[in-house]
């Protein structure tokens, strides 16, 4: 798997993503500066977490207009795989590659804690090493992770099976107490119609080493590495 990690000014979880990718593929990903537009040779492009351009406008709004985003649109249209985590998810929605928006957390506070995610479909490149309905743990760290879309869009996402992950209790129940940021229908991660673009708010890349408290996030990266192995 040849992976690229995009760095916008203010991106700050690129090292975490690189560690996770290297753990499963044995190779360091290519770091792609936001002004670069050459994605040739890549199987996967990751947009990591952070505060691109300070998030001083809406989160991700300015990054969505960076030169690299045109290249990513073409990459996705040509069937390339794109993963957006946290700020990367926000950028994908701002760029129109995924529907909806990420609003301020319902509590109006930044939340850094572990959450539990229920896998809604396991037949994608991103989730294939999990089982359907499996619950895994992941750290989250965001102030704007409250997924929002109009009811028709939400119905379409659910009807088309494009909800990848939902916030759940450790037992897998979808309940308000287990929805830390108030996301619509407890949505934590969604897919594009061709299942090749995924965005999610939590950080599975920070739970890939038993020493850091677990390896719940590892299957996401291992699945991609296996599916996209050259």
């Amino acid at each position: 798997m040849k992976a690229g990690v995009v760095i916008f000014p203010g991106t700050n979880r690129e090292r975490d993503i690189a560690i996770a990718l290297q753990a499963v593929s044995g190779q360091r990903p290519r770091m792609v500066w936001h002004r670069d537009t050459d994605l040739s040779g890549l199987d996967l492009v990751v947009l990591p977490g952070g505060f691109s351009h300070g998030d001083y406008l809406r989160c991700g709004a300015m990054a969505a207009h960076s030169p690299v985003m045109g290249a990513i649109r073409r990459f996705a249209a040509a069937g390339g795989y794109v993963l957006g985590v946290c700020n990367g998810f926000q950028i994908l929605t701002e760029a129109g590659l995924l529907p909806g928006a990420l609003l301020r957390n319902a509590s109006l506070r930044f939340l850094s804690q572990d959450c539990h995610l229920r896998v809604e479909r396991a037949d994608t490149v991103f989730t294939r090493h999990y089982q359907r309905s499996q619950v895994f743990r992941a750290p989250m760290a965001h102030g704007d992770g409250n997924y929002f879309a109009d009811p028709a869009t939400l119905d379409r996402l659910e009807g088309d099976g494009l909800v990848a992950l939902r916030y759940a209790s450790p037992a897998g129940d979808i309940v308000p107490e287990a929805n830390p940021n108030g996301s619509a229908r407890s949505i934590a991660g969604i897919l594009s119609p061709n299942l090749r673009v995924m965005g999610l708010m939590p950080h599975p890349e920070d739970l890939v080493d038993p020493l850091m408290g677990g390896t719940d996030g590892l299957p996401l990266f291992a699945g991609m590495a296996e599916a996209l192995a050259a």
């Binding site: 979880r13 850094s112 920070d206 080493d209 850091m212």
Partner: peptide, 9 residues
């Protein structure tokens, strides 16, 4: 819980 304590991995 308002401080990111895991970044950096």
């Amino acid at each position: 819980n308002q401080y990111d304590s895991t970044i950096g991995g």
